[in-house]
């Protein structure tokens, strides 16, 4: 219950922030739409030359783009800004205050920032997804829908765990915030296409090192009927492993945290 109150407070502060900077919000929407048009035109140019990209059709890829935008919204709503704040806090020493608060430090650090403007990504991403599904004429059954939501959730947990591990590293290495840029680059560029088209070494990187695969490709595979149960189990197992591992690493990191000013 206490945890819920903490989260609600941060959400309310985030909403007030958007209302305060309405102009920024509009520009952000313009940026998202331009990115969407870039993706769609690129798909158009590619499919001018071919009927299928490694077995994926135009509408499959549009669904993937929808999921990418949706996931970007989910990640940049709380996880990404909070982790950025955490790294900054460790560098400046303000993380000390987080530790003194009477709630779980991981929870506090993980929800400290709420970027309500990310709702725009979520709405636009869902819109693209619905349109592409309608064009595919796909009949998404109840079980498929459940699986899709579960996989989206798994993808979110995976990305969260990955970023938490990175942030925990900042207890030892102070200047790591730039690493978030690498994650963003991978997510925006490589995440726009199904990872099955990439050569093996790149696919491994995108699955285990910078987990874009589980977050975008796997949910897209489930919606377009490309997912076998082995991949599903692998994705869920990997997510569980990342979640447990990051929690353990966080606790281990905390025992080594000395504070910037101490």
């Amino acid at each position: 219950m206490h945890a819920l109150t903490v989260i609600c407070t941060y959400v309310r502060l985030g909403m007030l922030n958007v209302l305060q900077y309405r102009g920024d919000f509009i520009f952000q929407i313009v940026g998202i739409l331009i990115g969407l048009v870039t993706s769609l035109l690129t798909i158009g140019i590619v499919f001018n030359q071919t009927d299928s990209l490694n077995g994926w059709t135009t509408d499959d890829l549009i669904a993937l783009v929808g999921i990418q935008i949706l996931m970007r919204g989910v990640i940049s709503m709380v996880i990404r800004p909070s982790m950025q704040q955490l790294m900054e806090g460790v560098r400046l020493g303000t993380f000390d205050f987080t530790l003194t608060k009477p709630a779980d430090a991981q929870l506090l650090a993980s929800v400290s920032q709420f970027n309500a403007a990310a709702v725009a990504d979520i709405v636009i991403g869902l819109g693209v997804l619905v349109v592409s599904l309608a064009r595919l004429g796909a009949t998404v059954g109840f079980a498929d829908a459940i699986l899709f939501v579960v996989l989206l959730f798994a993808g979110t947990v995976m990305v969260y765990s990955f970023l938490l591990m990175l942030s925990t590293c900042s207890f030892w290495f102070v200047k790591l915030s730039n690493i978030l840029v690498i994650f963003g680059t991978m997510f925006e560029n490589a995440g726009r296409w199904p990872i099955t088209i990439y050569p093996g070494w790149f696919r491994v990187t995108l699955t285990f090192l910078i987990p874009v695969a589980v977050a975008i490709t796997v949910p897209a595979q489930s919606l377009t009927g490309r997912l076998d149960w082995q991949t599903t189990m692998l994705a869920l197992g990997l997510t569980a492993l990342f979640a447990v591992g990051s929690r353990w690493f966080w606790k281990f990191g905390l025992t080594h945290y000395t504070g910037a000013s101490a």
């Binding site: 590619v46 030359q49 071919t50 990209l53 490694n54 296409w193 088209i197 790149f202």
Partner: peptide, 10 residues
């Protein structure tokens, strides 16, 4: 990668 994949599949 995208364009070499396109050419390969064609």
């Amino acid at each position: 990668v995208v364009w070499t994949t396109v050419a390969d599949s064609n």
